[in-house]
């Protein structure tokens, strides 16, 4: 579904990605793990056309999207829920959801998708007239995911969905991610520091460190790998 091929990316003179390659198969959940500053967000920005690689290519559903603009990548079915959630605090909850369905592939299905989103997140239905800025952190993450679903994506990328949320809400969010993957058949790439949670839902994972992929494998292998345990799981 998504393939990053040997990405080299720099901010001015400072190179932050050194040949990152990864692949996400259709209908799977894949995790991208790594600590702060490893280059996770840069990887995602490059995938979404918000940064241009100096070398390497991005493929989505077999098409080269390396030079495409962000909005057309989004319209083609790849949706990112950014670390900063990506909700519009001055707009109402309902308007936020409607804007999720901005692209032409999603707009005709808007009402139907909205019903679905309200079933998954009943709280959003109750709060639809409220400004998004008044929501709690957990509600805002639900809105961010709900907004992503409105886009009818073929693939969803979630950047640090657990960031700043209470543990109970985190496991809620991950349940929803699994549900979306199974019921809506949406491919998921989840980028996390919360390695435990991520490996629980993902079937395969990549480990990013200092701008390079330093390890990868199925979740079971990684969970039983002693080095991984020490470095990332704190066991």
């Amino acid at each position: 579904m998504l393939k990053l091929d040997n990405l080299h990316v720099s901010y001015g003179d400072i190179q932050v990605l050194w040949g990152v390659s990864l692949e996400v198969a259709e209908n799977s959940i894949v995790a991208l793990l790594g600590s702060n500053g490893a280059g996770k967000s840069t990887t995602l920005k490059t995938a979404l056309g918000m940064m241009r690689p100096s070398e390497g290519k991005v493929f989505f559903r077999g098409q080269d999207i390396t030079k495409k603009s962000t909005h057309s990548i989004v319209s083609s079915g790849l949706f990112l829920v950014p670390e900063w959630r990506g909700t519009f605090s001055t707009l109402s909850v309902l308007e936020n959801l409607e804007l999720g369905a901005f692209s032409s592939r999603a707009r005709p299905l808007k009402d139907e998708t909205l019903e679905r989103v309200f079933t998954i997140f009943p709280i959003l239905k109750d709060r639809q007239a409220q400004r998004a800025g008044t929501l709690s952190g957990g509600e805002r993450q639900m809105l961010a995911i709900g907004r992503a679903l409105m886009a009818r994506p073929a693939m969803l990328i979630l950047d640090e969905p657990s960031l700043g949320l209470a543990p109970l809400i985190v496991s809620n969010i991950f349940e929803v991610i699994q549900q979306i993957n199974e019921e809506e058949r949406v491919t998921v790439l989840v980028v996390e520091q919360n390695v435990h949670m991520a490996l629980k839902v993902a079937s395969y994972a990549y480990i990013l460190e200092n701008g390079s992929i330093v390890g990868q494998g199925t979740s079971e292998t990684l969970l039983s790998d002693q080095q991984i345990q020490e470095a990332y799981l704190g066991i």
Partner: peptide
């Protein structure tokens, strides 16, 4: 829709483009 896109872009153009807004 255009009006909402304008308001969204005013608040945060990056998030707007991530919503598929040109």
């Amino acid at each position: 829709y255009i009006g909402k896109a304008i308001r969204a872009t005013a608040e945060d153009w990056q998030t707007a483009s991530l919503s598929g807004i040109n």
